[in-house]
Design a protein around this nucleic acid. Structure first.
Length: 155
DNA sequence: GCCAACGTTGGC
DNA sequence: GCCAACGTTGGC
């Protein structure tokens, strides 16, 4: 089973925002990258788990665990001219962008920081871990079970 | 705020 | 189809 990593800026939508949603569930909208979209459209299955990562903040790191609550469906924010992620090229009859629903499983007891992950980047378990690889800016990315177990073991 | 990385756009 | 210009991401 594939695991996942979801990146979000806590100033925009952080783990506490997810926790505050009804059912602690929300849609993961606004992804406008084809590779990330394809992951959500083609590979994400209900019940799979993902890390919730805070980016672009004072202490970037993994702060929680989420579960895929609903598999890919059209991202309606692409149709809304008022939405910051509006994309006039996404036709409602043939939606270009996809989102999933994620549900909070739990917050981690502590943040597993990007700094400590980088310090461990030499470990074979993390050799291919996207967060510690240079230049990976995808907002949604797959995590192997081995990476998942290793990272969670740091908690 | 800087800047490296890198995806997208558009002229040719 | 190439590639320069441009915009965005995100760590620092």
């Amino acid at each position: 089973m594939t695991c996942w990593l979801f990146k979000s800026e806590p100033d925009v939508f952080g783990i506490d925002d997810l926790a505050a949603q009804p059912g602690q569930t929300d849609h993961w909208d606004g992804v406008r990258n084809y590779q990330a979209r394809n992951f959500m459209r083609d590979r994400m299955k209900k019940g799979e788990l993902g890390f919730f990562y805070h980016s672009n903040t004072k202490v970037p790191g993994i702060v929680g665990i989420v579960e895929i609550a609903r598999e890919g469906y059209p991202d309606h924010t692409a149709f809304d001219p008022e939405d910051p992620h509006y994309d006039p090229k996404s036709d409602p009859d043939n939606p270009r962008w996809i989102m999933v629903d994620v549900k909070l499983v739990r917050k981690l007891e502590r943040t597993i920081t990007l700094t400590e992950l980088k310090e461990l980047a030499g470990r074979p378990e993390l050799a291919e871990f996207p967060l510690v690889r240079k230049g990976n800016r995808l907002s949604v990315m797959p995590v192997t079970e081995e990476q998942w177990e290793f990272v969670l073991g740091l908690e």
